[in-house]
Design a protein around this nucleic acid. Structure first.
Lengths: 249, 249
DNA sequence: GCGTGTATATCGTGG
DNA sequence: CCACGATGTACACGC
């Protein structure tokens, strides 16, 4: 799995290594003192420091500092990655055409370069909004008795309505789901959809925000707009699962 | 800078290594076959695959697969990281209290473990919205002649207004900035602020969306709400800088 | 700790 | 390609 491993390579050796490994499909790493420059949607300059570069097989690039999940610099996709020797340093340029972006890394003092082969396996996530939507579409009574779901992800000019339904009295209902605490933004979003639906149908349309909880200001905004709130949870049985023995032994 | 380096360590050796290095302030890596489980805001399970774990000195954790900038699993902050041997495997548990989250990694076949010392240096970013705001606050004429800025980041019940100003005719103006293409959401946001300002002042308040461009639907929504658009760019001189010689030689 | 908003957001989806 | 919205968003900032 560790395909290649260089310690304190010379600029030439690092350049050759990178040129060889970049298209190998491996995850390629370089650690050491470097300077990183970015130009594109914004611009940034990181002066000489010790960083870790990850270049993945799909062409994505990230430069990590000592802190945080988020890389200091990155490039989600690259159209070309060039490695050259310039002024005695190995220089890596990762370019992306749309949007036009360039990350330039000057390897001042590389101390480590290696290639690792990774392999992804099955990955399952529960508790996403998509899953909530599926559950509620199958069991709309969890929102309100007598509710009938007409559409999921109904596309309108205002955007996609999570659930479009009819209540037991025949009124149309727009449901906006949030998997976490709902904010004012969620209320604005719901209001926009309700407006759009009202313009389309001509009648009165109810708007329901379905979320585990909401912020105080969101509640005020919701009441001001005469919209409704229904409590739903993304992970109904989480509490039970959390007390399963063996987790913190 | 490369503080320690183990190849295909035994579970015991890996456990000892991790327990020692976790509080060293180094960036700690483990690569190899592993199983990753997450429980907290949601739940996830990654079956046995080849992944790369990064544990940084600030307690953040990320598990990378072969593709993408975003880690497959992560933990932005941890309150405790425990490493034990269980059923013959080295098991790492990264726990966070608020929100209550747990990432569990079972190292099935570690092929590489190492500790690297990183050091951050000066980092400068241009073209952020904050910088746009500063520029426009100093040169409000770029938005409109005769504009006087009253507040930056004015906090209201509806949220923070980027720029609050008065036009040459004395009307209040709410300016919402976007550093990229503005969407319907941005228009909703602006509308919410304008509503709030109108309720406060009692008079008519203008709303200006200042961005480099906007989407088609956003434009329609803007017009429907009788709001205005002004073109501003986050990086005014980018084109000139992009054709500087030496970039693609 | 909450609420809010930005981000070079990234990423997937659907038209 | 564009538009839109979710994300276990992360992260910084103000109260």
């Amino acid at each position: 799995m560790l395909e290649e491993h260089l310690v304190s390579p010379t600029p030439d050796a690092l350049t050759t290594f990178l040129q060889r490994q970049i298209h190998s499909g491996c995850l390629v790493q370089v650690a050491g003192e470097m300077e990183v420059q970015y130009m594109g949607r914004a611009m940034s300059m990181a002066e000489a420091g010790q960083y870790l570069v990850l270049l993945k097989g799909d062409g994505s690039l990230q430069v990590h500092g000592p802190k945080g999940v988020k890389p200091m610099n990155w490039q989600p996709k690259t159209d070309s990655v060039q490695v050259t020797v310039e002024r005695g340093y190995c220089v890596l340029r990762a370019h992306r055409r749309k949007p036009d972006e360039l990350v330039t890394i000057t390897m001042l003092l590389p101390t480590l370069a290696q290639a690792i082969r990774l392999q992804e396996a099955a990955f399952e996530l529960s508790g996403s909004e998509a899953q909530m939507q599926e559950t509620l579409a199958r069991h709309p009574e969890l929102i309100e008795p007598g509710l009938t779901v007409l559409n999921r992800e109904l596309v309108t000019a205002a955007g996609g309505i999570d659930l479009y339904a009819r209540d037991r009295e025949g009124r149309f209902v727009v449901v906006e789901l949030k998997r976490g605490r709902a904010t004012q933004d969620a209320v604005s979003q719901l209001a926009r959809y309700v407006d759009a639906a009202q313009r389309l149908t001509g009648g009165v349309v109810r708007g329901i925000l379905a979320a585990p909880e909401m912020t105080g200001p969101a509640r005020l905004e919701l009441e001001r707009r005469v919209l409704e709130f229904v409590q739903v949870t993304a992970l109904p049985a989480l509490e039970q699962q959390a007390v399963q023995p063996g987790l913190f032994d």
